[in-house]
Computed example of a mutant assay.
Amino acid sequence: MNTPADAFELTEPELTADDLLFVEDPHFEPASVAIVTGAASGIGRATAVALAANGLTVVGADIDEAGLEGTVDLAAAVGVDGTVRPLPTDLTDDGDVEAMVETAAEAGELRYVASIAGMQYISPIPEFPPEKYDLLLDVMLRAPFMTAKFAMPHIRATGDGVGAIANMSSVHGQYATQDKAAYITAKHGLEGLTRAIAAEGEGTLRGFSVSAGYVLTPLMMNQIEDTAEERGISEREVVEDVMLGQARGKEMLTPAEVANLFTFGFSKHGKHLNGADLLWDGGYTHTYE
């Protein structure tokens, strides 16, 4: 069957070991534990696998239990040296967040946190449902704060106090576009939270954020559909004109490429990355025509 010339389809790439960054680091071993939220899909899944591939014990947290099992299966297929331990977690429940951190601390020396879980809702501000606004802020801003609150004492209690808390920000943590008020507010807030963590980290406990451009994830593919409907344009136009129109690079990032930034940032090679943002956006933010 021939595909129509105007047909448009995006699929999330399959992750393999060849996609991953491997780093030599004395703390990248099974005794060191990393929490990864949003680990059931997309960037969170790729990051959980990437960190486990570097020898860490990873507690992968998500509300999607079936998705977490898929992450465990992917780690096995990649052949990781570490372990991914799935932990069903409701990030809107402070008790669940605290239990997540305690479970991680019981698994070894908790040194790393990657707060990646995210959501999106497309709507202009006058029609934006307040309950959706609250939900997105709970998952993407309050939960990272509560995770840091509970995790920081454990990281400080390790032998040398070395560790890092990383927050998944976005180009939308740098500027705003229309119809994404809650997402943009959360990501801007995460930049502030990251700096606050760094300010209190005393140098050995670092805070940093990762800001990617558009990444081929299930969340992004849903967003393409929603944006096309909201603006009355085709999905191809959303990708080529709205999402990548301003970028110098014309390819979306893959989840593995973003996961590698967390690996680098957590490693000894990222020791001067503190309170700052790894902006990986293909020139989207700081160039224009």
Rank of each mutant, 00 (worst) to 15 (best):
T3D: 08
A7S: 14
E9Q: 14
L10S: 05
P13F: 07
E14W: 07
F22W: 01
A34H: 09
T37V: 07
A39I: 06
A40W: 09
G42R: 03
G44T: 11
A48W: 05
A50Y: 04
N54M: 00
G55F: 08
G60H: 02
G60M: 08
E69S: 11
T71K: 02
L74N: 04
G79N: 08
V80K: 03
R85M: 09
D90G: 00
E102F: 12
A107W: 12
L110P: 06
Y112S: 03
V113E: 00
A114V: 10
S115I: 03
G118P: 07
M119R: 15
Q120Y: 14
Y121G: 02
P124H: 09
E127D: 14
E127S: 13
E131N: 14
L137K: 10
L141F: 07
P144A: 07
F145W: 12
T147Y: 07
A148S: 12
A151I: 09
I155M: 04
G159D: 09
G161Q: 08
S170W: 06
S170N: 04
V171N: 02
G173P: 06
Y175H: 12
Y183H: 12
Y183V: 08
H188E: 05
L190E: 05
L190Y: 08
L193F: 11
G203L: 00
G203F: 10
V215G: 01
M220Q: 05
M220L: 13
M221T: 08
I224G: 04
T227H: 01
E230M: 12
V239I: 08
E240L: 07
R248T: 15
G249T: 15
E251W: 11
F262P: 00
F264L: 09
G265W: 09
H269N: 04
K271I: 12
H272F: 15
G275F: 09
D277V: 12
D277K: 09
L279K: 03
T287D: 06
Y288S: 10
